[in-house]
Nucleic acid binder design. Structure first.
Length: 428
RNA sequence: GAGGCCGUAGCUCAAUGGUAGAGCACCGGGCUGUGGCCCCGGGUGUUGCGGGUUCGAGUCCCGUCGGCCUCCCCA
């Protein structure tokens, strides 16, 4: 069998990496403006962490994690998301004792064993942003605004997105009001159980809220006849949602209240949100997040509410670049074309001298014609080529060729400073 | 995990069951040390992989791997 990458795990060629790197730098730049600091957590955690945080009955934990037994008999899991790990770190390192509120973010790979398709990999990257402290509508509005700010920033350089972003928000209610809705939902759904699809009949027992965003027409019909969660909100949740809506509007953010928006992770309460790229594909959610008031406590930490979101970097990339838009290489390259062994040796030294002075340089030691080397330089889009052949060496000179203008001149080989100035001044 | 479509050169794609091709790319030459434009020449292949049917399989059948789409789920 031919050796090939594991299903759902992708190779990144330089052009892929440039796109990824660009998105990371945009994220870091904007996050830093909001006072968020980058942290790093391990890719592996004890399985228990995810069972306790994401929820034992969720699909993610039940069938999508890469879980295995370590050599010492411990069950470990490749992280399917970052929030749980960050919470663990905040507790373990007592970060809450040193600073509050906490503004952290992390960028890295996540792993979920799902069927791969466009916009869905088994190894995928997330920018995960987490805020811990007292959470008010102001904080929520700031985070939602931040997520949009990051996502839209590349429009400045790459133009409007083909797939416009759509912000949807909802409130799942709090321990005051969610149970009564759940009760209503279960009893109402049980009455129409035979009208629901198979999976929803099972969900009824385990995770009734998920029936709300089922895409089966039959289920949609049933759900549309039911009261929605917002009709059960307690007064605190209602006021909270109204306040948040007002703040988002005052920030000029367009959003939609989607009463059927539900998240796949158990730890969310009250405010949740999702940003979709309309028409991208079946996997059109680019960013999603919400509040998790009790997660830190449930993991054995102090009472410390949190709110966070995650951006799917590959999906975001599809929105920004489409299938083939490239991120240009910004630093100009000087190409050296030596002819023969003696010239190769001089090129080796010369390229080092130029690099020491901050000039990106690539020599060609290949035994090829000058024509072939120039053709290669042209293909790379190189602006300057230094030609080093017998003629030049005999005069202790080097030929600087300007590929755009098609001009060239002989310069002394031993005066590197002069050569560098010449390259830099022409580049302007 | 379920269903469907697909897999031929580096890329995009042709080839009624009968000698595997085109465009682009690439390499070389015209031009002995000067890129781009032009002209000439070169096919670079385990038809994803493994079986089967057949005188003969890129083509039909089965399996498998991978991609895409829908579902599930999700970033």
């Amino acid at each position: 069998m031919k050796l090939q990458a594991v299903r759902g795990f992708k190779d990144w060629l330089p052009e892929d990496f440039r796109r990824y790197h660009y998105l990371c730098e945009v994220s870091r730049k904007i996050l830093s403006l909001y006072g968020f600091e980058e942290v790093k957590i391990p890719i592996l955690e004890r399985t228990e962490l995810y069972v306790r945080s994401i929820g034992e009955v969720t699909d993610i934990v039940q069938k999508e994690t890469y879980t295995f037994i370590d050599r010492n008999g411990e069950s470990l899991t490749l992280r399917p998301e970052a929030t749980a790990g960050i919470c663990r770190m905040v507790i373990e390192k007592s970060v809450y004792a040193k600073q509050k509120p906490i503004r952290f973010f992390t960028i890295g790979p996540m792993f979920r064993h799902e069927r791969p398709q466009k916009g869905r990999l088994r190894e995928f990257y997330q920018v995960s942003v987490e805020y811990f402290g007292d959470i008010t509508p102001f904080v929520e509005a700031e985070l939602i605004n931040l997520s949009m700010h990051i996502l839209k920033e590349p429009e400045k350089e790459f133009g409007s997105f083909l797939h416009p972003l759509r912000l949807e928000i909802n409130s799942l209610g709090c321990p005051e009001c969610r149970p009564s809705y759940r009760e209503y939902l279960v009893s109402a759904l049980k009455e129409k159980k035979d009208e629901l699809c198979k999976t929803c009949q099972e969900r009824l027992e385990r995770n009734p809220l998920r029936v709300l965003d089922c895409k089966e027409d039959a289920c949609k019909r049933v759900v549309s006849g039911l009261k929605t969660l917002n009709e059960f909100w307690c007064s605190a949740c209602r006021e909270h949602f109204t306040k948040l809506s007002g703040l988002l509007s005052s920030l000029g953010l367009k959003f939609f209240h989607n009463p059927y928006l539900v998240r796949g992770l158990d730890y969310y309460v009250r405010t949740i949100f999702e940003i979709k790229a309309e028409g991208l594909s079946a996997q059109d959610t680019v960013c999603a997040g919400g509040r998790y008031d009790y997660l830190v406590e449930e993991l054995g930490g102090p009472k410390l509410p949190g709110i966070g979101f995650a951006i799917g970097v590959e999906r975001w990339g599809l929105v920004v670049f489409g299938e083939d838009r490239a991120v240009p290489e910004r630093q100009a390259l000087v190409f050296i074309a030596p002819l023969g062994d003696q010239a190769n040796e001089l090129a080796l030294k010369l390229s080092y001298e130029l690099r020491v002075r901050g000039i990106k340089t690539v020599p060609s030691y290949e035994d090829k014609s000058l024509k072939a080397k120039l053709r290669f330089a042209d293909k790379l889009g190189v602006e300057y080529v230094l030609i080093l052949g017998e003629d030049e060496i005999s005069q202790n000179k080097v030929c600087l060729k300007d590929m755009k203008r098609g001009t060239q001149e002989l310069l002394p080989l031993d005066d590197i400073a002069f050569l560098v100035n010449r390259i830099k001044s022409q580049a302007e």
